[in-house]
Design a protein around this nucleic acid. Structure first.
Length: 925
DNA sequence: TTGGCTAAGTCTACTTTGTCCACA
DNA sequence: GTGTGGACTTTGTAGACTTAGCCA
């Protein structure tokens, strides 16, 4: 096919060849390059054409071949009509050459050929197989394709960089979104404390009496959130896609509780409510899926691309998130129909049958696990040391499989399920783990841990799997926040293994820490104030023991008893309060230590780029020019042959002058830790011994020193009231440390004049530089004087300021009076002129003057009074000229006639009036 | 898909210590 | 005659940093 523009081209290939041959001697090199480029481009095009025609256009080609005769006829007509000398078989090469040019200039467009605008194309001959053959023959015979070399050179795409303003806006949006999500999490956490919801959930279980056993607690976790082995929590609640309908958190939970169907957030929150109803210390944990911190950055869309073909709801619903083989996968969430069809049939594929098979085994395993395994495993260990997943033990730890065949079958099944799970994750067909629960499980000697519990997916202690699942779902694990007691705590480090990657995507830590600071206290108070299993068990025992005692003083005792009236209860409250506080601080600090330990024991990255901004490690190649490693060691490892050092070894070097600003000076005899060479482009010459001339370039060296080479600044002390000054007769006050001993910095305006008047020695205090008039200029603020003169100068300064203020006030008053006098004088003069010339032709200017007077007379009421004086009014009304009998010609000479005579306070006045209406009022002497 | 490398654009820190003239 | 204060004009550069593209 040919484009319209192509059909209008005046030159045929033959003509191009002629031109090429004519210009060949002028650019032999270019021709060689062009021929190579042409050959490559045509080769690529041929591949593409073959591929395209073989795969896509075969059917169409058959139709075209059947109509080949007709098309050739029309092509001949076309050739005759255009009048171009297209040889047989050259139309197609030209066509290909055109495509080759397009392809060479923009290879990416190749994929979008189908999207070409139809208007750009006209009906033409379809290249048939025979024509292809001809084309190849022609190609072999030396036909080449010319194209503009400027379009075929590989060019980088123009890089669109965000400006500082865009970055700032993006940061604002990021922060705002973060705060919104933080607020949302707090609301949801608050809703989890709703007693109605908790009671409603409690009504579904009936083993509260056996709760107070850590062994039972673990078992409860394992069997699926208190709903029994056959009726697990995540089987009981259906997870559906995120609802866009605006619902309050309470109503969302209530609705989910009633319909047994809700969003992942609501289902996770219900599990929190359930645990809290059971008096377990529980947090509602959420990934704050906030918009990117970078402009035009990736928005964490809740839907993955694959889902678009089968409907967005499929993958927006939370399904299994863990990669491992899972019994819960087999007995997975009762999902909506599309979920079952979408995932079990597509993602799992053949493994769906495996899943069905394992479902039966899984249930058996669950049963066996919940009854046997926990009792054996948890009898001695309170905290589940290995990650406990209800899915894993069911296949691995069954005692019933003893025979070799059974073991082989087990391994095969495990491998199949692993492959299924990996495939599932690889194809991004899992729901994003956005919400889960953390339950504090206390161990011996107050050593406890927060246990990850995902009620939606039926996973316990799977914190190490969250990151992988989030990555698989294109979710960024930037902020993982645990909510409790209206507070919040950042627990991201518990769930991420590569903190250096996460930290780069987070907002600056100071702002985030400031936001979370008050929330951390609330969270700490709530989680510490809650009851862990150990504490609860002991408290429960105490309650039972004290029931008898309570009956003595008449207090009704329940688990939340606190009358506060009786002495025992008061003491118990105080004791409990202090215990809770200590428990909270201990628990919180222990968790902080744990998170900090995780951060400090992060594994070494395997790529060099990661060391550029890594908080813990560094390699020497990424050091800045003013950084060195001191001490250079220890070597923690190697990355691509580069030694890895702790980041703490990195020292920042500064010049002597820079250290002075820090209040430090370089020790005598210290050799620069690093010497920088830089070219001198400024006209000012440095001292000759500081300059070097190398390779004809005028360079200067900059000696840099480390902090270990410095000592506190020793400035000469002020003696006999004389301030030590620098070579410019000033004192550089970068900070208080830069003040000579015995001096003080008086940062007051006009204080220098006071010191000078008192004949006290002082020095101007230079506090920095500012750019004025295109160059930097020192910035002075106040003076530096000896300490003993401080009070005298301040007292004199106050007196001088009072005197100056009084003088200024007096000057202002005089100036105000003068301006009032000028104003009134001008008004009177103007009014007099107005009364004289205000009629007739001068009426308009008079009005304008009055308008301008009005603008400035808002504060001059007196002036308005004068303007509105009786005499003026009389003039305005009585002096209004009569309508002239006839309009005189322009530029006529006034002929005044004595109109009337009046007498005023200032004497008799007379008015002369011309017949044109112009009048003159004058006073008679 | 990941990592190494590079190009290119953006941002940031560094630099640094006047002169003339009107007016009080 | 002298001191004071305002106007003048509005940098330039190197290097760090970031990001996208290319390639292995």
């Amino acid at each position: 096919m040919r484009t319209r523009s192509q059909s209008k081209r005046p030159q045929s290939v033959g003509e191009q060849e002629d031109m090429k041959s004519r210009h060949a001697p002028e650019s032999i090199d270019d021709n060689e390059t062009l021929s190579n480029i042409s050959r490559d481009a045509v080769g690529k095009l041929l591949k593409r054409v073959n591929k395209g025609f073989n795969k896509e256009n075969v059917g169409y080609l058959r139709q075209c071949e059947s109509a080949a005769t007709m098309e050739r006829g029309s092509r001949d007509i076309d050739k005759r009509s255009t009048g171009t000398a297209i040889e047989k078989g050259t139309a197609e090469p030209e066509c290909y050459g055109r495509e080759a040019m397009q392809y060479a200039s923009n290879p990416e467009k190749d994929e979008d050929d189908k999207d070409y605008d139809d208007s750009e194309w006209e009906d033409g001959s379809i290249p048939t197989l025979s024509s292809m053959k001809d084309f190849q023959e022609d190609l072999a015979s030396g036909i080449s394709v010319e194209f503009d070399v400027s379009h075929c050179l590989p060019k980088r795409k123009p890089v669109r960089r965000a400006t500082a303003e865009e970055k700032e806006v993006a940061e604002f949006v990021h922060k705002a979104h973060l705060l919104c999500l933080l607020g949302r999490g707090r609301l949801m956490d608050c809703a989890c404390n709703d007693p109605l919801i908790q009671d409603s959930e409690m009504s579904n279980i009936n083993f509260i009496n056996i709760l107070y056993s850590k062994r039972m607690f673990i078992m409860v976790l394992l069997i699926g959130m208190c709903y029994g082995s056959e009726k697990t929590f995540h089987n009981n609640f259906h997870v559906r896609s995120q609802s866009v309908a605006e619902k309050s958190c309470h109503s969302a939970l209530a609705s989910t509780l009633e319909t047994r169907e809700g969003t992942p957030e609501a289902v996770a929150a219900l599990s929190v409510a359930l645990f809290r109803a059971l008096n377990l210390t529980t947090r509602f944990v959420s990934i704050l899926d906030v918009v990117s911190l970078k402009p035009d950055g990736e928005l964490s869309e809740p839907i993955v691309e694959v889902g678009s073909k089968r409907g967005r709801d499929i993958f927006s619903s939370s399904t299994l998130m863990v990669a491992g083989p899972s019994c819960s996968f087999a007995s997975s969430v009762k999902s909506p129909p599309e979920v079952e069809h979408g995932i079990s049939q597509t993602a799992a594929g053949g493994a769906g049958r495996q899943a069905d098979k394992s479902k039966k085994n899984g249930l058996q395993c669950q049963d066996s696990l919940t009854i046997d395994e926990p009792k054996e495993k948890m009898s001695d260990v309170a905290v589940p040391e290995p990650p406990i997943d209800i899915s894993e033990p069911c296949l691995v730890k069954s005692d019933g499989l003893k025979r070799k065949g059974d073991l082989e079958f087990q391994m095969q099944l495990e491998m199949a399920l692993s492959a299924t799970a990996i495939g599932t994750i690889g194809s991004k067909k899992v729901g994003a783990p956005l919400y889960w629960v953390e339950v504090f499980c206390c161990g011996e000697n107050l050593t406890g841990k927060w246990v990850h519990v995902d009620a939606i997916n039926g996973i316990v202690d799977g914190e190490h799997k969250v990151e992988a699942a989030a990555v698989a779902c294109k979710k960024s694990l930037r902020y993982v926040v645990a909510f409790a007691g209206q507070g919040a705590k950042d627990v991201t480090r518990r769930y991420c293994t590569k903190w250096y990657k996460v930290a780069a995507k987070r907002v600056n830590s100071s702002w985030w820490d400031a936001v979370l600071a008050p929330l951390r206290e609330l969270e700490s108070g709530a989680t510490g104030g809650g009851v862990n299993l150990e504490y609860e068990a002991s408290a429960h025992e105490k309650n039972e023991e004290s029931q008898v005692a309570n009956s003595n003083h008449g207090c009704s005792l329940d688990k939340n008893h606190s009358c506060g009236a009786c002495k025992e209860c008061s003491e118990k409250q105080v004791e409990g309060s202090s215990m809770r506080k200590s428990l909270a601080s201990t628990r919180s600090s222990l968790e902080d230590m744990e998170l900090e330990t995780r951060a400090l024991t992060e594994p070494l990255p395997t790529n060099q780029q990661a060391y550029r901004n890594h908080q813990l490690y560094v390699i020497e190649r990424w050091l800045n020019k003013n950084q060195v490693l001191y001490p250079k060691g220890p070597v923690l490892g190697f990355c691509s042959g580069h030694a890895v050092y702790p980041r703490t070894c990195v020292q920042t070097l500064r010049t002597k002058e820079r250290w002075l600003r820090e209040g430090l000076q370089v020790k005598a005899g210290e050799v620069p830790a690093k010497v920088l060479k830089r070219s001198l482009k400024r006209g000012k010459e440095e001292a000759p011994d500081d300059d070097i001339y190398a390779d004809g370039l005028h360079q200067e060296i900059t000696a840099l020193y480390g902090r270990w080479q410095t000592e506190p600044l020793h400035l000469p002390r002020a003696v006999n009231g004389i301030v030590p000054k620098n070579e410019r007769g000033r004192v550089d006050v970068w900070s208080e440390k830069c003040l000579p001993p015995g001096t003080v910095h008086l940062r007051l305006p006009r204080v220098a004049a006071v010191a000078r008047r008192l004949d006290i020695d002082y020095a101007s205090a230079m506090v920095g530089f500012e750019f004025r008039n295109g160059r930097s200029a020192p910035l002075f603020e106040g003076i530096v004087v000896c300490t003993e003169f401080k009070d005298a100068i301040l007292q004199a300064y106050l007196e001088e300021e009072e005197r100056r203020e009084a003088e200024e006030k007096r000057r202002n008053e005089v100036q105000a009076l003068s301006r009032w006098y000028q104003l009134l004088s001008s008004i009177i003069t103007r009014q007099r002129l107005n009364s004289c010339y205000g009629a007739g032709a001068l009426s308009q200017p008079s009005t304008e003057i009055r308008k301008s007077d009005d603008k400035c007379s808002t504060s001059a009421n007196r002036a308005q009074e004068i303007v509105a004086s009786p005499r003026c009014q009389q003039d305005d009304t009585s002096e209004k000229p009569d309508v002239p009998p006839s309009m005189p010609e322009e530029n006529h000479e006034h002929e005044f006639v004595m109109d009337k005579e009046a007498s005023g306070e200032e004497g008799p006045t007379q008015v002369k009036r011309c017949r044109c209406g112009f009048s003159v009022q004058f006073e008679t002497l």
